[in-house]
Write a protein that binds this DNA or RNA. Structure first.
Length: 490
RNA sequence: GCGCCGCUAGCUCAAACGGUAGAGCACCUGACUCUUAAUCAGAUGGUUCGGGGUUCGAUUCCCUGGCGGCGCACCA
């Protein structure tokens, strides 16, 4: 840390020199006439020396030549060169300017001109320090590439690697686009509890916390499903929420302990209506984010303008394996799974075997937008029985780019059946399944007051952003992915 | 949680078989009034992730811990 300290001391020394000269290194505001992007666009209307312009940004490079200095400043959307001459700004100002260095945030005022290499440049008449920085920037040529540092110090990553900012801007736009679509379709944006006395709506292990005054355990939500459905009971016929959910599970390229899920529910609709809606929503969102609604992910062109492929769960398995698992006994399912090379135990319940088989063999191949529908009942305790096919539920999952990006069903609204499903989950839990869902008496009470027939949908926002930004890891689409604490001084 | 790989200056990276730890950029000093990875001359900068072991000697080999990446497992 000796080396870093030395670099910081040198910067603090310059800071003190600025102060000694009566300059506030952290002034309150700056009003530029243009952003850098606007300067570039406005250039054709400005002739040399004609108009005084000013703009602010971070100093990304400095090239001094005695009595002149060139450098670049960057703001959110652009980079522009500045040029400072001692004979223009004066001897004292030039000396003060020499205390400004790479990384500092400055305001530059001057006139636009083109250098002899034809680069648009601000010939500075005034340079004002707006923020003195105390740490050196990463090396200008390679920048910050170490993944650990990029994730831990995202603030540095963001200004050193402008293309990273694009990922997050796209993320924001995706959410905006989806929100507008939903609002345009009569959905009401709502907020429901993150701290829940009982967790539900998904099969996952929760984070547990504690309320001091109430002296009670609380859980961070794993889903907002059960609360949104309570709102349907309350007559809010179409609701949605962009929800941070929390699941106490492993971390990998596709999983972060906290993640964003958009859930929406619509009364009087069923899962088939929602398939159409998801198709339309993704067509609109993709149109807003990508030229022609076509996205390239891992080298695959994914066209959201085309109708999605639709295939029933057991048909998808049959298509891939040539075997009809629908008609097999539990023993046969186990034996076939072993034959297909799956790592399953003799006592693994057959729905879990199918689930495993599906995610191993089928899911990775679902690159083109695909709806898989009509799932086995055992995996879906909150979905309504299939209207005509015993043992199945009216559920579909959208797949894109080889992974599941959502989950939807015709919502189970029969309170007696729902209680039975919860009781089956309780039995699983008693046998040691920590992810089995918890019986929620208040939710059942709500259903007993009557929830209209409804469809519900959850969309994994992070994964969609990965697809739209061609990002290999969920960490690349989260500003601050979860990390173990670093040790020692930073 | 398990396996494999990595961790060297602020950043990006080197270091033959185990033999005084280096470069570029940044920083510091000096020169330089159209440069742009500015250039030129010089100087500074290290707990080689931590701890232990083997050895005359460890960045290097062994053990152990930390952090990260990738894969597996679990999930969305």
């Amino acid at each position: 840390m000796e080396g870093l300290d030395k670099l910081r001391r040198a910067r603090i020394e310059k800071l003190n020199q600025l102060k000694a000269a009566g300059v506030n290194p952290y002034p309150y505001r700056f009003r530029g006439t243009h952003t850098i992007e606007q300067l570039i666009a406005a250039e054709k209307n400005l002739s040399e020396n004609e108009m005084l312009v000013s703009t602010a940004g971070r100093v990304m490079s400095v090239r001094g030549h005695g009595a002149t200095t060139f450098g670049h400043i960057a703001d959110l959307n652009g980079t522009i060169q500045f040029y400072i001459r001692k004979d223009i700004v004066g001897k004292d100002a030039y000396k003060l300017f020499k205390l400004i260095e790479v990384g500092d945030i400055v305001g530059v005022e001057g006139t636009l001109f083109r250098t002899k290499t034809d680069e648009l440049t601000i010939r500075a008449q005034k340079v004002e320090i707006l923020t003195k920085t105390l740490r050196p920037l990463p090396e200008k040529w390679h920048g910050l590439t170490d993944k650990e540092l990029r994730y831990r110090q995202r603030y540095v990553d963001l200004f050193m690697n402008p293309h990273i900012r694009e990922v997050f801007i796209k993320r924001s736009k995706l959410i905006e686009s989806m929100r507008q679509f939903l609002i345009g379709n009569g959905f009401l944006e709502v907020e429901t509890p993150i701290l829940q006395p009982l967790y539900g709506g998904a099969s996952a292990r929760p984070f547990v916390t504690y309320h001091n005054t109430l002296d009670m355990k609380l859980y961070l939500r794993i889903a907002d499903e059960l609360y949104l459905k309570r709102l349907l009971v309350g007559g809010l016929e179409r609701v949605f929420e962009f929800a941070k959910d929390f699941r106490n599970e492993g971390i990998d390229r596709a999983h972060n302990p906290e993640f964003t899920m958009m859930e929406c529910y619509a009364a009087y609709m069923d899962y088939l209506d929602f398939m159409d809606m998801v198709e339309e929503m993704m067509r609109v969102v993709a149109g807003d984010l990508a030229a022609g609604g076509v996205v390239t992910y891992k080298g695959h062109e994914i066209d959201f303008g085309k109708p999605w492929k639709r295939i029933r769960y057991f048909d998808a398995i049959k298509e891939r394996t040539g075997r009809d698992f629908r008609r097999m006994s539990d023993d046969e399912i186990f034996e076939e799974a072993i034959e297909l090379g799956l790592d399953v135990e003799k006592d693994t319940p057959s729905p879990a075997i199918l689930d495993e088989l599906f995610s191993e063999l089928i899911e990775p191949e679902l690159i083109e937008p695909t709806f898989v529908y009509d799932y086995p009942k055992a995996l879906s305790p909150l979905a309504k029985d299939h209207r005509s096919d015993e043992g199945l539920v009216e559920r579909f999952e959208p797949f894109v780019g080889g992974f599941e990006v959502g989950n939807a069903f015709s919502e189970l609204n029969d309170p007696i059946e729902q209680r039975k499903r919860f009781e089956q989950q309780a039995a699983l839990r008693a046998r040691g399944d920590e992810e089995a869902q918890i019986l929620d008496e208040d939710f059942l009470r709500a259903l007993e007051y009557g929830m209209p027939p409804a469809a519900g949908l959850g969309i994994g926002i992070d994964r969609l952003v990965m697809i739209f930004t061609d990002s290999p890891s969920i960490r690349d689409v989260l500003f601050f992915p979860h990390m173990r604490p670093e040790e020692g001084p930073v």
